[in-house]
């Protein structure tokens, strides 16, 4: 059984390789033209992309996974059971439809499509735990059962430093974005009750406050779910590794078993969330 994911997954190359996860890249466009991206991009190239993104006149966008890219990835595993797990379908209906089409048009390929129901860091931690389950010899049914469980115990929290991108994606008005950014207000987001969407959960002035709020929510989740173990992925865009490290330390200091990893973001998030961001996706296990 093999696992195929997409580049919304924030795990770094080394982790992906170790876990045997094959990733298909979302295409990216700069001002309407193809912009070359791949999961193999160096940190320098990601930084170059990030700086270009900071220029507000540059408009980056993505589109659904390309059929030929998906098919090429699936073909590498002809004859094997393929779990094709992707970020919430609400973020890319086209991708979901493309995969379903490929699966129906190529019955020789044994593809099981899974909608992870979460985005970025939360999608990543689900992918990571699914890969570990496969490596430990779980059957397809067991893996699918585990995914259902994870989806009910997963939460995604994030902080956006530059509100302009929330405006560009239609989440807040321009006036509020300009004002908020001028006041150096940070926007906090959380996965919402509706699968695959994010909602605003308030604001903060600095990362200490952000992490304090995040930790409060994590503690509440542990309490409500009587959690004894927490697996988390923190992804970072921009110069926020210190803040991410601080959050990691605080989560690891909780009185439960923890596994927390920080990954510098892959490219595909930047078009939507902007050049300054960090988020945490975590699963609470009882």
């Amino acid at each position: 059984m093999v696992l195929i994911a997409d580049s919304a997954c924030q795990l770094n190359q080394e982790t992906l390789k170790k876990l045997g996860i094959r990733v298909v890249d979302y295409p990216m466009y700069l001002n309407g033209k193809d912009y070359p991206v791949s999961m193999d991009m160096s940190r320098e190239d990601k930084e170059k992309l990030r700086l270009m993104l900071k220029e507000k006149e540059n408009v980056f966008s993505t589109s659904g996974l390309k059929e030929e890219d998906l098919l090429a990835a699936y073909r590498e595993f002809t004859g094997e059971k393929i779990i094709s797990i992707h970020q919430a379908s609400s973020a890319s209906t086209v991708t979901m439809n493309t995969i379903k089409n490929v699966a129906s048009e190529h019955p020789d390929l044994d593809i099981t499509y899974v909608d992870a129901g979460f985005l970025t860091a939360a999608y990543s931690v689900i992918v990571q735990d699914v890969a570990l389950a496969i490596q430990s010899g779980a059957s397809l049914q067991e893996v699918l059962g585990l995914i259902d469980l994870m989806k009910t115990s997963c939460r995604h929290l994030g902080v956006v430093y530059d509100l302009f991108y929330l405006h560009r994606t239609g989440r807040i008005g321009l006036a509020k974005a300009v004002l908020g950014t001028a006041m150096k207000i940070l926007a906090l987001l959380s996965s919402a009750e509706e699968v695959g969407t994010l909602k605003s959960i308030g604001k903060a002035k600095n990362s200490t406050q952000v992490n304090q709020r995040f930790l409060g929510i994590i503690k509440k989740d542990l309490e409500e779910k009587r959690g004894r173990r927490i697996h988390a992925v923190i992804s970072v865009i921009g110069p926020h590794e210190k803040e991410a490290e601080d959050l990691k330390r605080q989560v690891e200091a909780l009185d439960v078993e923890t596994r927390v990893e920080i990954h510098y973001t892959n490219h595909s998030n930047m078009a939507h969330i902007g050049p300054d961001f960090y988020d945490i996706g975590y699963i609470v296990y009882a």
């Binding site: 919402a192 909602k199 605003s200 959960i201 308030g202 604001k203 903060a204 002035k205 406050q209 709020r213």
Partner: peptide, 21 residues
């Protein structure tokens, strides 16, 4: 206190979250 406000939530959730801030 306003940092804890979210227009997505109702009054009870907002009171809890705002008190925390």
């Amino acid at each position: 206190t306003s940092y804890g406000y979210s227009a997505n939530d109702g009054i009870d959730d907002n009171v809890t979250s705002m008190k925390e801030c």
